Simulated assay, not measured.
Amino acid sequence: MAGIVGYGVYIPSYRIKVEEIAKVWGDNAQAVSRGLVVNEKSVPAPDEDTATISVEAARNSIKRANIDPKKIGAVYVGSESHPYAVKPTATIVAEAVDASPDLTAADLEFACKAGTAGIQICMGLVDSGNIEYGLAIGADTAQGAPGDALEYTASAGGAAYLIGSENTLADFEGTYSFTTDTPDFYRREGKPYPRHGGRFTGEPAYFKHVLSAAEGMFKKMGTEASDYDHAVFHQPNGKFYIRAARKLGFNEEQYKTGLLTPTIGNTYSGATPLGLAAILDVAKPGDRIFAVSYGSGAGSDAFSIEVKEGIKEKQGLAPTVQEIIKNKRYVDYAVYAKFKGKLKMA
């Protein structure tokens, strides 16, 4: 059975508060914060992108796994903000972590669920015996047009998972996916910012897919919300996350640990993987975790995970999510706009 051998995360240290963005656009900061359940978000520095975030997260996952990176047989990087249109991020990561060239590597794109798609691929390769270890990463430096609602949430960060079958810290009990052609969010080739369907992104998009995948997972496993100690969902904002959790029967004690959007924003492909990592940082052997991602376009991947004894010795081998979150420096809107390349030369 495939499981998690190691995990690692990285979040840029720069932050911008919701009120700083609201001040520029004349919005009510308190209303925005309450409506989205977001207080501040991470901002990538000029020298940070999906590749650098992925490399740092991957290195931390290898520290936790305590394995020889030469044994990694597959590297998949899921993102919607790869630095190159034609040039894989995955090969950069593989080289940076000193993996052997005897591997398969690819970039994945499925909006915010590309990272969990990579986990599923690695699970299959490990279970089939084709590889010993697979590295799956979800990372993004998310885009939001100036003045758009996305600007309050679109942030940066990522998480990496080493998947294997021996010395695991958590095992996958099962996975289930739900997918339809729902164009709630998209970005055309060559365009700098995505477009979205406003409220359309909620009911027929996010909630339909997250709830359907979750209910499919429950049915497949013969479980319900009360069978799990922790739950984490994709979090475009805190409001959607909490509503989905409650609709499925989870209480605050179960879902609060994985809810990171209020302090770092929506990291897109990194959102569910980062939330899962925050749970693994504090999980105990025997705990069961329920995780559901979401990617616009649209689809969701659900996972049922059981924590193993091996987690106790691995939790402290790399920085935790909360340790990284606490390392922060605030910027104003002018610096934020400069870092994000929102200022264009005439």
Rank of each mutant, 00 (worst) to 15 (best):
I163K: 00
G297I: 06
E215R: 14
Y255M: 13
Q235F: 09
V307K: 03
F207D: 07
A29S: 12
F218S: 06
V55F: 03
P204I: 13
S128F: 04
Q254I: 06
N60A: 13
T52Q: 05
L211N: 14
G216F: 07
E215P: 02
A244F: 04
S61E: 00
T175F: 02
A85R: 14
K239M: 11
R187W: 06
P69N: 12
A154R: 06
K308Q: 13
K328V: 05
F178Q: 03
F172V: 13
T116A: 04
A29R: 07
V232Y: 00
T175L: 00
L259V: 12
G258R: 08
T267D: 08
T320L: 11
L274S: 03
F110T: 09
T50M: 08
T91S: 15
G295M: 10
L317I: 07
F240K: 05
V55S: 01
A45C: 09
T257Y: 02
A244M: 09
D287W: 01
F207Y: 15
I305G: 00
Q254W: 07
I4N: 00
S304P: 02
E20F: 04
E151H: 12
G316N: 15
L103G: 00
Y161L: 03
P44A: 15
K63I: 02
L248C: 09
I137G: 01
F200Q: 11
P101A: 09
D227W: 10
V24R: 15
G164T: 10
I163F: 01
G190Q: 10
D98R: 09
D171P: 00
L162H: 04
A29E: 06
A51K: 10
K41G: 05
L162R: 06
D140L: 08
G216D: 05
A142F: 09
V43S: 08
E40I: 07
L162M: 12
V93N: 02
N237Y: 13
M221G: 05
G238K: 09
F207I: 10
H230K: 08
